[in-house]
Design a protein around this nucleic acid. Sequence first.
DNA 1: CCAGGCATCATCCGATCGGCTATCCGGAGT
DNA 2: ACTCCGGATAGCCGATCGGATGATGCCTGG
Lengths: 211, 211
Amino acid sequence: MAEQRIRVVLVDDHPVVRAGVRALVDAQDDLDVVGEAADSAQAVAVVGETTPDVVLMDLSLGDGPGGAETTRLVRELPSPPQVLVLTTYDTEADVLEAVDAGAAGYLLKDAPPDELFRAIRGTARGETVLAPSVATRLLQRAASPTPKVSPREVEILRLLAKGLGNKEMARELLVSEATVKSHLSHIYTKLGVDTRAGAVATAIERRILRP
Amino acid sequence: MAEQRIRVVLVDDHPVVRAGVRALVDAQDDLDVVGEAADSAQAVAVVGETTPDVVLMDLSLGDGPGGAETTRLVRELPSPPQVLVLTTYDTEADVLEAVDAGAAGYLLKDAPPDELFRAIRGTARGETVLAPSVATRLLQRAASPTPKVSPREVEILRLLAKGLGNKEMARELLVSEATVKSHLSHIYTKLGVDTRAGAVATAIERRILRP
DNA sequence: CCAGGCATCATCCGATCGGCTATCCGGAGT
DNA sequence: ACTCCGGATAGCCGATCGGATGATGCCTGG
């Protein structure tokens, strides 16, 4: 049958991973790897030239714009491809950011090849494909919405990570110590922790703070 | 020429990565992938059967024993292979642990294929091969008086990041609270901080802890 | 053989933290 | 108009932390 082959572009900064996905995907009759990119700029260029059906997108692209931002960029091109995120992590922030950026699917790199193929085909058909672990996580979050941390609270977290005490933060932010304590309490509640150390760790994990 | 081909076994829990490395390595005249393993047990079995020259070892193998422990195991086999660690991270603790376990080299997965091939050949010849970034990091540590954090102290840091109190850590680690405090004091000194929050932030920044 | 790092434990004490309860103000949304 | 929320402030109190000091046993490397 003269079915149209599904045209795929790979975006990943790891040559090894690109080679792996290419080897696996190209071995499928109905799938074609028509381009590769190692960073955001290359990705936009290659997608623009090849107008693929599906882009396999890694989220961590080394320096420069990450996979989420790149997803946004390629989705803004004329006749945009579906984007299937294929990455190592399933940090909630990552997933949400990617989906928000217009990703149609989210797979983890430890997925068996079969699952990858099915995901590509599904994504090409416009379906939304989520890895089981990711789906589970998302449902959890949907049930209990992640409270957003206010700008002021982020300030506090920054100083917290520098190891400042309440008194010092108060001086730094030109407010009273009571205010700092108040903010901290709110932070604890929002992040689901009850110590400064836990808050810092969670904030970094949630990408509220940059390591 | 009838040079002996270098026989390679891959150990990685990601099918995609195995496929990638296999595709790249098998395309080289002098390199042969003679086996793959997805976890520690498989690795030991496959290495025992195939007696390869070089094992490419991922450090994170999902559940069960990690790459470092697995390295130790395969190095204890009769006529042990050289082990070349090929992983995503370059946490100092990981590097040291792997080297201590008998690894002959340490490469990052974002290395270009050429570098990978050179590393495999070098390792097979018994050379020690370190990725530039890893080598740099090691030298930095060697030059600057970065006190190394002991394994036990890393344990403490891990629990610290989870927001545990001294009492809870003590219970968790089956030691007295006094011991925990002692470790903490040492950690503070080594990391140049004086609070738990600062310790966590610095530990993550220094890649002693993974976010 | 001995220094030195690691891991363990103990006490003391002042400083700090975290929870609780309340109040006040101003802007955004209903 | 009224409510909700972020931000700021206050006081109280018990629990915890961090620093200082000192000691023991083990192992490793010079």
